[in-house]
Amino acid sequence: MNTANASLFEQLGGPEAVNAAVDKFYRRVLADDRVNRFFDGVDMDRQATKQKAFLTMAFGGPNNYTGLDMKAAHAHLLDRGMDDHHFDAIVENLGATLGDMGVAEDLIKQVAAIAETTREAVMGRI
């Protein structure tokens, strides 16, 4: 965790911002026909926890995500046809969520950049 990321997390509002964003983000994702089929039949309680962990990471918060975790967690979705366009859609939903929350454009770009760092792992290319 570097200091620039820690300050991004603080600027966004820390754990409270994660709690505020999780409903809005997940609702957008489930309403998005490009990607919602990947969430069919998931346990919503567990999914909420995963979304919080993901948002904490993307907001530059403390986390212990590793590339291998991300790869393992998404492998079954590759089998179901997930590709880069779906990844793009999730990042887009993330940006739109933050936009709804009134977050400044330059901070949204920083969040998108952190999310982008997981792309190769999620797509199983590492």
């Binding site: 926890t49 962990a53 904490t56 918060g61 986390n63 212990n64």
Partner: peptide, 11 residues
């Protein structure tokens, strides 16, 4: 089990 270490993910 753990995740964010920040009280957010509740893992």
């Amino acid at each position: 089990d753990y995740g964010c270490k920040a009280g957010a993910c509740q893992r």
